[in-house]
């Protein structure tokens, strides 16, 4: 493993109730400020792979190393702050956008200091201060996505795991998301693993591409080949 790798998967397998492997000896690595795109049909184990990475679920065998350390040796609570997982449908709690963003400040004492950081991060994801008081129910899917992203950024995560972030977005919002994610990587030097079905989205964002089929992963040069080979 080179020092440049922030995350490395070695022979990672996962099975539900010891039945056939949902993930079968997955090996690849992620560099700092790199965006890896994972393509694959539904049920191919993409979400499982992401959830294993920040120990929302435990891998069955193999090893994932974060900054050269086996993630099993890292407290899951710390690991999840470093490696953030954003599900396909972002979940916002009832209340205002501000209430949702304050969730990233676990100590109540930090709430007073939170305002400036919240404003800055909200701008980074393309929302203005008027959103702070808006109820989470009023937001469109694209706006919810961005609030959830801001909440994760406020948590100072080093790696973002995004599960089909654009699946519910129209083309315009999808393009906004691409720009936002690119800016975040440039500015914060954050690494990302993004699962997606959509070719344009993959092409516009990814540095490297993998396809996941029947629990096995392969690197591909061009996301198009995943479509041609019928992976998606």
């Amino acid at each position: 493993m080179t020092n440049n790798n922030i995350l490395e998967y070695s022979d990672v397998s996962f099975s539900y109730n010891n039945t056939s492997n949902a993930l079968d000896k997955i090996s690849f690595s992620l560099k700092k400020a790199e965006i890896i795109i994972i393509l694959g049909s539904s049920g191919s184990g993409k979400s499982t792979l992401l959830k294993i990475t920040n120990r929302l679920i435990e891998l069955t065998s193999g090893c994932v190393r974060y900054n050269n350390q086996d993630i099993k040796e890292i407290s899951p609570l710390l690991l999840r702050k470093e490696i953030a997982y954003l599900p396909q449908t972002p979940y916002l709690i009832e209340g205002s956008v501000n209430d949702n963003l304050l969730l990233s400040f676990q100590n109540k004492e930090d709430h007073n200091l939170a305002n400036n950081k919240i404003m800055k991060t909200l701008n980074e994801v393309g929302l203005n201060e008027k959103y702070l008081t808006r109820s989470s129910h009023e937001l469109s899917v694209g706006e919810k996505q961005r609030v959830a992203l801001a909440r994760t950024l406020l948590n100072h995560s080093k790696i973002l795991l995004l599960d089909e972030p654009n699946s519910a977005l129209d083309e315009e919002n999808s393009n906004i998301l691409i720009q936002t994610l690119k800016q975040i990587v440039e500015r914060e030097r954050i690494s990302m693993i993004i699962v997606t079905h959509q070719l344009d989205f993959a092409n516009n964002l990814g540095n490297r591409f993998f396809n996941l089929k029947n629990g096995k992963i392969n690197e591909i040069n061009n996301p198009k080949s995943a479509f041609i080979n019928g992976v998606i």
């Binding site: 609570l77 702050k81 990233s104 676990q106 994760t152 948590n155």
Partner: peptide, 13 residues
Amino acid sequence: LAEMEMLLSLGYN
């Protein structure tokens, strides 16, 4: 479930 996954993902116990 979604709410719990979100909170756990943010590092809550």
